[in-house]
Structures are given as C-alpha cells and as structure tokens.
C-alpha cells in the first residue's frame, strides 16, 4: 500500500472519526510513515504485522506496541538450530531485495555465523520476481543447505521453481515460516514437503488454545488460519484485555498504556506478553517441518525454542 494513502486514511480515522486506538499496519514503510503522526496525536498503536526492528527500537515510543514480530526475531533461532541440530556448516542465503528481506536474512546469518557456520553465497532477487530460474541456476551446489525468506505472492512461485530446477533433491531448504504459510501450502503442493522453517505460529500447533482457534476459524472462513490470522486475533485480544483491565476507561492515557504493557494471556501461538522495555512482543519460536499427513500439507512443530533461549536482541 502507498504510505501516503495510508497516512490520509489514518488522518480520517484520528481527526475525522476520533478513534482512540489504531491497529493493523502490514507494511513497515507505512508504519514509519504513520509513526510521527500517531505519536504526536498520542494514539496508542498496536502493530499487527510490520516487522522493521526499528519500530520498537530507535523509532520506538511508549505509544507503539507490536504483537507480531520484529524482523530477525524468529529467524535468529534457526541459525542455532541449523548449526547444532541439523549439523549444517555451509549455507546459501536468499531473500527478496528490500528492507525486511535483508533484515530477516541478517537475523539468520548473525546466529549461524556466531555458531561458526559459513554463509557461502547471498542472493537477493528483486521483490516480486516472476522467474527465479536465473537465480536458482546460480546457487552454489557445494552448500549443505539453502536458507530463504519469501512471502506473499513470491512464495508459491519460489517453492515450485526450487523443485522444478532440481534443487529440492540435492539441497535441503530452510526458511522462514512465511514461505510455507498455511494459505500457500495447497498451491505449493508436494514441492513444499520437507522444508524446515522457523515461525511464531503454526496452525498445526497442538495446544488447547490453538485447537479451539483453528476449529472456529475454519468454521467461520472455511480455510486454515495462518500467521496473519493469529496476529489479528492477538491484536484484538490485547485491546480487549487492556480495556477490561481499566474497566473500559481510556481517558487516562498513561494508565491505558500501562494496561496494554501488562497484558498477558495464552494465545493460539502460545504464551503472549510484551517486552516491557521495547513494547515488542516476546514469543516462543517453533521449528516446523512441512509434511503431508492424511493427504494434507501441514507445518508440524518439531521443536519449541522458548523465548528465554532466543539470543535475538533488539538492535539499538
């Protein structure tokens, strides 16, 4: 979305309709564009997807909360896992050439290198590449594995073309959970089987909260929930919990902000809370493997990395 259009809409909401809380915001560019306006107007913002780490770092504010993720936050544990559990030493990294893609790749590379691993090639195709053929043919076949981040329209094409060019058979694919998003899996088909990814949500999580969430989501929308469904749910739940804590009173902004800061509950994704300092979310990271179970592709969780063991930290 164009940031200028988003800002115009935010003005309509805040100036025109006097809304008290703004939530959503998918793109980091939009989030940066709205940031000053919303902070100046003292509007609490619950970011439900935009991932630029700086939004809860150098551009952070007591009005800005993030329930989704910071770029790098769930990529970082994959570096450890790839080196220590999968025993990989030499990895090729691929991600789209834009701020989020680079920031996510850095999250993985930092921890993989810190463990002693080697990144032997970095390839950054342009965002929205139609044809990955030229890039895939260049991948260094001497690697132990390929780590990638792609999301949205890119991920179906990438996974299929990775198989088409015969790489699936020789180089294991590691990824962010975005690549094997639940909405993309049916279109990716068998090409997605075996991908190991790290994420903060999987529809296949076997917890009471998630089972209930998945059942009611399917009943309502007729499809599997994915990270965006979970993030939207958590954003709404945070607002409700904070309102309940203050008895629906938002006249005292400081009190309301502190109520948001202290929200804790068990979300579909697992335990939810904010880092009180940065107001960015803290979550457990799941290492998941895409498998076909009863004819359906799912992201089975094979390891849970608790928040306390995640070495990622907010860049200052």
């Amino acid at each position: 979305m164009n940031p200028q259009v988003a800002l115009q809409k935010a003005r309509r909401l805040v100036d025109g309709e006097n809304v008290d809380i703004v939530t959503g915001i998918v793109s980091s560019t939009v989030a940066y564009a709205l940031r000053d306006y919303l902070v100046e107007n003292k509007v609490p913002v619950i970011i439900a997807n935009a991932g630029a780490a700086g939004l809860t770092g150098e551009k952070g504010s007591k009005y800005i909360f993030r329930v989704s993720f910071a770029n790098g936050q769930y990529e970082y544990p994959m570096g450890d896992y790839a080196y220590n559990q999968l025993n990989l030493r030499r990895v090729v990294v691929m991600a789209p050439d834009y701020a989020a893609g680079l920031e996510k790749a850095r999250g993985f590379m930092d921890s993989f290198r810190a463990n002693g691993g080697e990144i032997i090639q970095e390839i950054y195709p342009k965002l929205g590449t139609t044809d990955y053929g030229p890039y895939l043919a260049q991948v260094n076949k001497e690697a132990d594995a390929v780590w990638v981040h792609f999301s949205g329209t890119d991920c179906i094409r990438f996974v299929k073309q990775y198989a088409d060019y015969g790489l699936k058979d020789i180089l294991p694919l590691l990824a962010t959970g975005d690549l094997v998003d639940e909405s993309a899996l049916p279109h990716q088909g068998d090409a997605a089987i075996g991908i190991v990814s790290s994420h903060h949500y999987s529809a296949a999580l076997d917890t009471p909260e998630n089972r209930k969430f998945v059942t009611s989501y399917r009943a309502k929308y007729g499809e599997e929930p994915n990270m965006y469904a979970d993030q939207g749910y958590v954003a709404a739940r945070v607002i409700v919990e904070a309102l309940e804590a203050t008895g629906g009173d938002i006249s005292d902004t400081e009190k309301f902000l502190s109520a948001i800061r202290n929200v804790r509950f068990t979300a579909p994704r697992g335990p939810f809370k904010f880092d009180p300092e940065t107001q960015n979310v803290i979550f457990d990271t799941y290492i998941q493997k895409t498998e076909k179970i009863h004819g359906k592709l799912v992201n089975t969780v094979i390891k849970t990395i608790p928040a306390a063991e995640n070495g990622w930290s907010q860049p200052k």
Partner: peptide
C-alpha cells in the same frame, strides 16, 4: 538481458 542480468548482476535486477 533479464536472465543473464539477474543471474550475474542481481544487484541491478530492478
């Protein structure tokens, strides 16, 4: 141009 450009000069792909 696109294929060889992207393969060997991915920085200029845009």
């Amino acid at each position: 141009m696109e294929t060889f450009g992207n393969a060997f000069f991915p920085n200029y792909a845009m």
